[in-house]
């Protein structure tokens, strides 16, 4: 291999694409021509330095996630057609939905508590009909004591009597005082 041929083979040598025979001829050409060797070393040094520089400057903040910004941009550009909600963006339900769920649960709990509280109030505002007697009456008629306690007019007879004696004609008035019941 002549010196000119060796110069033309610089890239192949740099990329390690020389066959063993050509590699040997290349080395021999470098050994024969000190000027050629100097050129080769400069050429190789610059490329190696470039590679080393690139490795050194390699960004370490690879955890940077560009996806949210891309999703926002696509949502904006598409007028909201894409990436409309947080599920589509892969962000999960988010805090707002959790807060809504908690609020709903709280409302359900409050409603349940109020319902139970009203049952107690019904018994408290029914003068003349002690709770105990209602329970006994329910027990005597073979009903479950809990069912009897759920409403002062739980027994069919008492409900009928209550409706008949309502002055305003409001059928089903549940808080009718017991004194009107004969």
């Amino acid at each position: 291999m002549t010196s000119d041929e060796a110069r033309e083979a610089f890239d192949e040598a740099l990329d390690e694409r020389l066959s063993p025979e050509r590699r040997e001829a290349f080395e021999q050409a470098l050994a024969r021509d000190p000027e050629l060797r100097g050129e080769w070393e400069r050429y190789r040094a610059v490329i190696v330095a470039m590679r080393a520089q690139a490795r050194r400057d390699e960004p370490t903040d690879f955890e940077v996630d560009v996806l949210p910004a891309i999703q926002r941009e696509l949502r904006r550009r598409s007028g909201g057609r894409y990436y409309r909600d947080r599920f589509a963006t892969g962000g999960g339900p988010g805090v707002s939905l959790l807060l809504v769920l908690v609020a709903v649960l709280l409302c359900a709990l409050v409603a349940a508590w109020l319902a139970l509280h009203l049952v107690s109030v019904e018994h408290a505002v029914a003068p003349g009909v002690p709770f105990d007697s209602t329970v006994r009456a329910a027990s005597a008629s073979g009903q479950d004591a809990a069912a009897a306690g759920a409403s002062p007019s739980a027994t069919p007879d008492r409900r009928r009597q209550s409706v008949q004696t309502t002055p305003s004609g409001e059928a089903g008035t549940r808080y009718k005082p017991a004194k009107h019941i004969s």
């Binding site: 100097g38 050129e39 070393e41 400069r42 040094a45 610059v46 190696v48 330095a49 470039m50 080393a52 520089q53 490795r55 050194r56």
Partner: peptide
């Protein structure tokens, strides 16, 4: 991080500094 980089063709005495300088120039 200039290890492995040889700027032998440039004839400088301090190879480590040479490599760093070469990288900056490159």
């Amino acid at each position: 991080t200039g290890a492995g980089v040889r700027a032998g063709g440039f004839g400088r005495p301090d190879e480590a500094a040479e490599a760093g300088q070469l990288q900056r120039i490159v």
